[in-house]
Design a binder for these strands. Structure first.
Lengths: 110, 110
DNA sequence: TCAATGGTTCCATATTTATGAACTATTGAA
DNA sequence: TTCAATAGTTCATAAATATGGAACCATTGA
């Protein structure tokens, strides 16, 4: 049984967030998720279809442990959402500022 | 003869900046430099005195190549400044937003 | 010319990251 | 039940990156 561990809001660190977003792939994953109304499966949120499953899984784990996303098991899929409220409470404006400077991956090749 | 290569303003990338700032040591280096009126030597800007010279040198190289700082040789020292104007022009508000969330290293143990 | 200072570069080691293969959990069909 | 398909995770290993000691370079001052 896979259980996902998410840090509580106050345990989210600036360095963790920056490290998580310093990878181009993870930055694009978060960007694509923020632009989406609901939650997304790992495969849906992946901006790069030819990436190894294990690598993708690892990226989601890093985003999760940094506190950027929340993952819940729903059927056979894992549904992911960006923790925008927690991020805004912890680091007001940070996520919006950063994401505002990177291109939306679904606009270019969606 | 050591020559420092700095990226031009337009070549500064978001991912490069985030990667450079995702390291706790480099984040503190930049933070301590921004709070300073003039420029600082590598040793002065180092928030951690027991760090190996080679490691420190590597951190400054990464910050330089990311476009966050400018390094000039002045006598026996290397003088470093944060490229605040270039950063502001390229990614308005980003640096101030990020640095606003990390503690000033010289206030706690300066 | 020599010693001291402030870094850089090189190299070996340690840590981190990426990926294929094997595995787990859920769904749906027979 | 059982079987196949789907969606991810975990493990082991290969590749990339960070660390730090040693040697080195450039400048200053005696």
């Amino acid at each position: 049984m896979v259980q996902f561990v998410h840090p509580s809001r106050d345990d989210i660190t600036l360095e963790g967030v920056l490290a998580a977003l310093s990878d181009p792939m993870r930055l694009r994953i978060v960007k694509s998720m923020v632009g989406q109304p609901g939650c997304m499966s790992c495969t849906e949120a992946a901006p790069c279809p030819d990436m190894a499953k294990s690598t993708l899984s690892n990226h989601f784990r890093i985003l999760r442990e940094a506190g950027l996303i929340r993952t819940e098991k729903k059927g056979v899929e894992h549904r992911n959402v960006v923790r925008q409220d927690d991020m805004e409470a912890r680091f007001p404006g940070l996520l919006k500022t950063i994401l505002g400077f990177c291109d939306d991956p679904r606009r270019s090749n969606g």
